[in-house]
């Protein structure tokens, strides 16, 4: 066992973990933050995407010990109290989900995408979400949801 200290969604946790514990299992099973999903065994689906120090990563392909001392943000930490993040609002408004399994990862990946490219073209949105698979929506409405958030966030930063 190794002791790690991680700040998750602004709250600090100190826990003992086995070195082989994956970050996603630590979040889901030790912190009960089950918004982060596991959709594959091959690091390909993106259902598990979270941010470590503001950078999007697949938490199924990161060890919990590697997050020692870091700031982690999960889907549970994205909204500002009762106010949804523009991406959450976009997925709601534009019907960017059906079963919702891929949605937390989609949103966390899209948040990183918009940070680096606040006004992406539809092509850039598709390219930027290459690491996230959705078996329901056909992606069309996911692109619209990200577009909605990009427009809303750039309008907010102008005003």
């Amino acid at each position: 066992m190794t002791t790690i200290s991680v700040t998750v969604n602004g709250k600090q946790y100190t826990h003992d973990v086995e070195p082989r514990t994956l970050l996603v299992h630590f979040l889901r099973e030790q912190l009960n933050l089950t918004g982060t999903h596991i959709g594959c065994d091959t690091s390909q689906c993106g259902a598990c995407v979270v941010h470590i120090n503001g950078v999007s990563v697949k938490s199924c392909t990161t060890l919990a010990v590697q997050a020692d001392g870091a700031q982690v943000t999960t889907i549970e930490g994205l909204a500002d109290g009762a106010t949804l993040h523009p991406l959450q609002e976009g997925f709601w408004e534009k019907h960017g989900l059906q079963c919702g399994y891929c949605t937390p990862g989609m949103i966390m990946a899209a948040a990183d995408l918009l940070k680096n490219n606040p006004n992406p073209s539809d092509d850039e949105i598709r390219h930027g979400l290459e690491g996230n698979l959705c078996r329901c929506t056909g992606y069309e409405n996911i692109v619209k949801a990200v577009r909605y958030a990009a427009d809303k966030m750039s309008a907010a930063s102008v005003s």
Binding site: G46, V49, V57, K58, G131
Partner: peptide, 9 residues
Amino acid sequence: IGDIQVRNR
């Protein structure tokens, strides 16, 4: 290479 998350790590 891969996707943004793969390239981040």
